[in-house]
Simulated assay, not measured.
Amino acid sequence: MDVLSDAVAAMRTGHPHSRRNDKHAPWGMRFEASNGAGFHVVLRGSAWLIPAEGEPVALGPGDVAFLAHGRGHALASGLDVPLEEVRLDADGRWPEPEPPSRAEGPEPDTVMLCGAYTLDRSRAHPLLTELPEVVHLPARVGAHRSLRAAVELLGEELEESRPGSATIVTSLLDTLLLYILRAWWQDGHRSAKGRPTGWAAALADPAVGAALHAIHGNPAHPWTVEELGARGGLSRAAFARRFTALVGEPPLTYLTWWRMTTAGRLLRADETPLRLVAQRAGYTSEFAFAKAFKREFGVAPGQFRRRVS
């Protein structure tokens, strides 16, 4: 299994939403803090992204900005422009845009794609929690072609509603999120010497990366530290040291955390019998699973399911 895809799937809930924003200068929008994550792509013109913390970021045509932590931010045509509060509808959708006045003219100064994802931060994967306040991916010729293609397709679907657009837009938004994160870890999450850091280093390390893929590929398997280390050709002790240094916790601690995260996702998603949830989380005994789940979540599996349904 793909660790990045798993990390996103573990947190994603509900349906993502997006809208094209055509703006006539001067303009300013303030987004309140939320449980979700958001992105902005400048298709034409320019904008200033003003995060809750840190310096403003100048965005130009083709630039992508992703805000993973939902701390609130603003977008504006200039740093001295008054900001209008933007409130999403009750279901998380964007409010319908008001038609431009005649004084604004037919052509907007700035065209953007803005979107939002709903996340469950109670089981936030460290892959996402280590992201900075703003992930800024400047437009560069030849860089991140898949990301640019997804942006172009999304822009076309949002510009004109056609049969199947609702499903296509949802799929493109999920795809776009993964492309944004992949782009960041591929070329943005590096030390001053150009080496991967954090989880990028963990995934790039042959032994630790192999172990992570094994855990995510089959969390129900009764993995041992020795068996996981053998995947990368390391002794038990050497592997345990390297895994702990790069991931931030010992191998079996991470394995247990991921098993419980997987179980929580299954309980939240459907009516899979508890016996099968326990098996998929690596427990042969439903009683042992329920005990471990309550220790991790503070409630029994059945109560957890009723609470999130």
Rank of each mutant, 00 (worst) to 15 (best):
T129H: 03
S101I: 01
R295P: 05
F304T: 05
R242L: 01
H40C: 13
H69S: 05
T13S: 10
T118Q: 12
A207T: 01
L181V: 03
A68R: 11
A65G: 07
D205G: 00
L246D: 08
M260K: 00
G72A: 11
A7W: 00
G78S: 11
A207Q: 02
M260Q: 13
N218L: 14
E85G: 12
V277P: 00
L176P: 01
V64E: 06
P301C: 00
V86C: 10
A288G: 09
N218F: 12
R280E: 15
R280I: 02
I168K: 10
R44M: 11
M112S: 13
P273T: 09
T197L: 07
L4V: 05
H24Y: 14
P26V: 06
L266P: 07
R306T: 11
A58D: 11
C114N: 07
D174L: 00
L255G: 00
P273I: 06
G198M: 04
T175S: 14
P138M: 06
A103G: 12
A150T: 15
V64M: 09
M1S: 15
D205Q: 00
P100E: 13
R121T: 12
S171L: 14
V277F: 01
L75M: 14
H73A: 12
V208I: 01
R190C: 04
L113I: 06
D270S: 13
P126F: 02
L172H: 03
G298N: 09
G115E: 10
R241N: 13
S171Q: 13
G115Q: 07
P97A: 10
R195D: 15
L178P: 08
L128Q: 08
K23Q: 15
G70S: 05
A292Q: 03
W223A: 04
A103I: 07
M29Y: 13
G198D: 09
F66S: 08
T272D: 01
A68N: 10
P56H: 09
E85K: 11
A240S: 14
A166W: 07
W223Q: 05
A300V: 03
P126M: 03
E226I: 01
L59K: 03
E227V: 07
H216M: 08
L212E: 11
V141M: 09
N218W: 14
S309A: 15
L172M: 03
V42Q: 07
R87C: 13
A281N: 01
G115K: 07
S122E: 15
P99H: 06
S18P: 08
L274C: 10
P301V: 00
G92E: 11
H125I: 09
G54S: 06
T110S: 13
G198I: 02
N35G: 15
C114Q: 14
W94P: 09
R306A: 14
P206K: 03
V64N: 04
A207N: 02
A238K: 06
L203I: 05
V86D: 11
L113S: 02
L49N: 04
M1C: 12
P16A: 15
P95L: 02
L176T: 02
A202C: 01
G155E: 09
L137K: 12
N35W: 08
C114H: 09
D109V: 01
C114L: 10
P250G: 00
L181Y: 04
L246C: 05
L83F: 06
T197P: 00
E152C: 10
C114I: 11
A288H: 13
R145E: 15
W94G: 06
V81Q: 12
G142M: 04
S235A: 14
T118F: 04
T170E: 14
G164Y: 07
S101F: 04
L137E: 15
